[in-house]
Simulated scan of single mutants.
Amino acid sequence: MFTKRFRRQALAAAALASAILPASAAHWALTGDVGAHDPSILREGDRWFTFSTGEGLQVLAGDSTGRNWTRAPRIFLSPPSWWKTYVPNQKANDVWAPDAHQFNGKVWVYYAISSFGSNTSAIGLVSATKVSDGRWTDNGLVLRSTSANDYNAIDPNLVIDASGNPWLAFGSFWSGLKIVRLNPSTMKPTGSQTSIAKRSAGIEAPAITYNNGWYYLFASIDKCCQGVNSTYKIIYGRSRSITGPYLDKAGKSLLSGGGTVFDAGNARWKGPGGQDVGHGVIARHAYDATDNGNPKLLISDLKWTSDGWPTY
Rank of each mutant, 00 (worst) to 15 (best):
residue 297 L to W: 10
residue 165 N to T: 13
residue 277 V to H: 04
residue 265 G to K: 02
residue 120 T to S: 14
residue 151 Y to T: 09
residue 47 R to Y: 11
residue 51 F to H: 04
residue 262 F to K: 04
residue 306 S to L: 11
residue 184 P to D: 08
residue 289 A to Q: 06
residue 255 L to G: 02
residue 108 W to K: 00
residue 133 D to I: 11
residue 156 P to C: 06
residue 194 T to Y: 12
residue 289 A to R: 05
residue 109 V to W: 00
residue 43 R to Q: 15
residue 137 T to M: 02
residue 268 R to Q: 15
residue 77 L to T: 14
residue 185 S to L: 13
residue 254 L to K: 10
residue 204 E to S: 11
residue 220 S to N: 10
residue 129 T to S: 15
residue 13 A to Q: 13
residue 242 I to E: 03
residue 65 T to A: 14
residue 125 L to R: 04
residue 264 A to G: 08
residue 36 A to F: 05
residue 15 A to R: 13
residue 167 W to T: 00
residue 220 S to R: 10
residue 66 G to H: 08
residue 80 P to Y: 07
residue 99 D to E: 14
residue 184 P to I: 08
residue 36 A to C: 07
residue 113 I to E: 06
residue 248 D to E: 02
residue 77 L to Y: 09
residue 106 K to I: 01
residue 35 G to Q: 06
residue 146 T to I: 02
residue 302 L to N: 07
residue 26 A to H: 02
residue 75 I to V: 11
residue 177 L to Y: 07
residue 218 F to K: 07
residue 141 L to E: 12
residue 88 P to V: 08
residue 150 D to G: 12
residue 180 V to F: 03
residue 37 H to E: 13
residue 138 D to W: 03
residue 301 D to P: 11
residue 95 V to K: 01
residue 14 A to G: 11
residue 167 W to D: 00
residue 303 K to V: 05
residue 130 K to G: 07
residue 254 L to G: 09
residue 262 F to P: 03
residue 16 L to D: 15
residue 30 L to R: 10
residue 303 K to C: 03
residue 286 A to P: 02
residue 91 K to C: 03
residue 14 A to R: 12
residue 60 L to Y: 06
residue 276 D to V: 01
residue 301 D to N: 14
residue 290 T to F: 12
residue 4 K to T: 15
residue 225 C to P: 13
residue 38 D to W: 06
residue 115 S to K: 05
residue 47 R to H: 14
residue 115 S to H: 07
residue 87 V to R: 05
residue 270 K to H: 13
residue 282 I to Y: 05
residue 146 T to V: 03
residue 18 S to Y: 15
residue 200 S to K: 11
residue 47 R to Q: 13
residue 71 R to E: 11
residue 195 S to G: 13
residue 266 N to M: 08
residue 200 S to E: 12
residue 58 Q to V: 13
residue 159 V to G: 00
residue 136 W to Y: 12
residue 66 G to N: 09
residue 216 Y to N: 04
residue 39 P to L: 09
residue 135 R to Q: 15
residue 205 A to M: 08
residue 121 S to L: 04
residue 261 V to S: 15
residue 196 I to P: 01
residue 142 V to R: 00
residue 44 E to A: 14
residue 113 I to F: 06
residue 284 R to L: 11
residue 26 A to M: 01
residue 149 N to M: 01
residue 90 Q to C: 13
residue 89 N to H: 11
residue 35 G to E: 09
residue 89 N to G: 09
residue 144 R to L: 07
residue 262 F to R: 06
residue 241 S to V: 07
residue 171 G to W: 08
residue 4 K to Q: 15
residue 235 I to V: 14
residue 245 P to V: 12
residue 249 K to N: 14
residue 288 D to G: 04
residue 285 H to G: 07
residue 79 P to Y: 04
residue 280 G to M: 12
residue 96 W to G: 05
